[in-house]
Design a protein around this nucleic acid. Sequence first.
DNA 1: CAGTGGTCTAGACCACACT
DNA 2: GTGTGGTCTAGACCACTGC
Lengths: 296, 296
Amino acid sequence: MIPGDSSKDSAEARADRTSIRAFQISLPHSFPMAHVFPASADPASTGQGAGTPAFSPLYQQIKGLILQSLEAGEWKPGEAIPSEMDLAARYRVSQGTVRKAIDELAADNLLIRRQGKGTFVATHAEQHVRYRFLKLMPDQGSTDTEGPAQRHIIDCKRLRANADVARLLGLRTGDAVLQVRRVLSFAANGGFVPTILEDLWLPGVPFKGLTAERLSDDRGPMYAMFEAEFGIRMVRAEEKIRAVMPDAEQAKLLELPPATPLLSVERIAYTYNDVAMELRRGLYSTATHHYRNELN
Amino acid sequence: MIPGDSSKDSAEARADRTSIRAFQISLPHSFPMAHVFPASADPASTGQGAGTPAFSPLYQQIKGLILQSLEAGEWKPGEAIPSEMDLAARYRVSQGTVRKAIDELAADNLLIRRQGKGTFVATHAEQHVRYRFLKLMPDQGSTDTEGPAQRHIIDCKRLRANADVARLLGLRTGDAVLQVRRVLSFAANGGFVPTILEDLWLPGVPFKGLTAERLSDDRGPMYAMFEAEFGIRMVRAEEKIRAVMPDAEQAKLLELPPATPLLSVERIAYTYNDVAMELRRGLYSTATHHYRNELN
DNA sequence: CAGTGGTCTAGACCACACT
DNA sequence: GTGTGGTCTAGACCACTGC
């Protein structure tokens, strides 16, 4: 836009662009260009309920718009998003500004850049990030040398959330949830050793139609199946870890003596916009594995 | 440098700069300008033991040079480093290239940018990062509401590293190490409840002169004292977590029944260049606290 | 070969902090 | 006011990918 006047960032050109940013606010559809006034704005326009509320740098606004498109499913997990040049044209900003927005989204693991090919929507289906959220590592070797875990679904039922589960999932008590119990076993000495006992709670509405068969039939990462089947992408999670003793049933399922201390790992996984989509309570046996964490 | 020819990136100008990068390799001292050929270099120069071995982007080389200065102590923790413009002049690159190098160092928590003031060497002494490496959180409230921990040094002695400790610290068996045992207690119900029992091993040579008095007299974060007294900055750490039962002595020191399961947290803390500088083995009581982790 | 992301530069203006 | 980092732009060239 605004050809000519290339070498100088003239006052007029600047004012022109500024006015566009100030007033062209989120045209509904077809031309998603929602620049807000960058910062030193005329205070009069601040008060307006302008739809896009924040006074943030342009690249942050662009980041927000890209995020909206990701949420809306405009580009599906694994697909390429438009090139930087295309996005720059679409949002009417320079390529550099789009680049900075994409840089941050890539740092958040929402997008993946591939030189020469394009920028892609991140997915849990890829080999090198399959165990992104699983921090339990074998004491010897690595996740790669260990091979895939054996999964055994013990239970899968639909029920109403109690107060505890509802609070953690951001639901109301009594809302429908799906509860799954499973055991993960890792290869060792020619057999498989039960190592993780997990209970999962999933909100009933977004996961409508999920069955025990669907879960147990699935090869590959569970979160990848959630993306493909339900369009739900887990982007972030929080874990709280404690040391506990198992009860009799838990010890039996893990084939351990009841006096074995275990890690209790409570995970809440979030999709876009910090919406909780999974509660997971795991018991990890740390006889041959450990929970690995990196501090920066 | 190279004035004139401003609007066009002419072939001559480019060739000139390239030659500078290719041949001006790490002048010893006084003018640290060590640009290596960016990438598409003449293969002949690759084989040379050119001191700076990597063929990396300019900003990565600049990052490396800044890192060297940090390591060498040219700028001390808490001090400001030269402005972007100054560094750009010093390394003979554009401000944007220096900026990208600093951006990465800031993302690694080695530098802290403060708008309008400058860029500072990160330190463990600042309030908002005091508990950067401590992931144990109170179940209710936060680290802020909880107030500072009470620290009690139980033991501090100089000894020779056994094979285990030596391996983890990158030393040889028999090398001198300092061993410290302490208990951390947190405020609760008007008193202090012992919650963490830690054993620390520090390499003897870099920590020469550290005494039990110096440790127990110190208010403030231990890592901040290491920076101020020994010039050692912990920049990164790895933790391995397990569930364990305490032995009789450990249970006594934590004032817990011997049948209480505890978190075992083994930490190796590194200074610049991935050099291990501390081994720490902690036992965390998770009755009123939990280990919190964020997954991205 | 064309198209993509990656690097580097140069220059303008803004927001912030100190003096 | 001066100087700092922060944002935005524009344009050039590079490296990688796939046609």
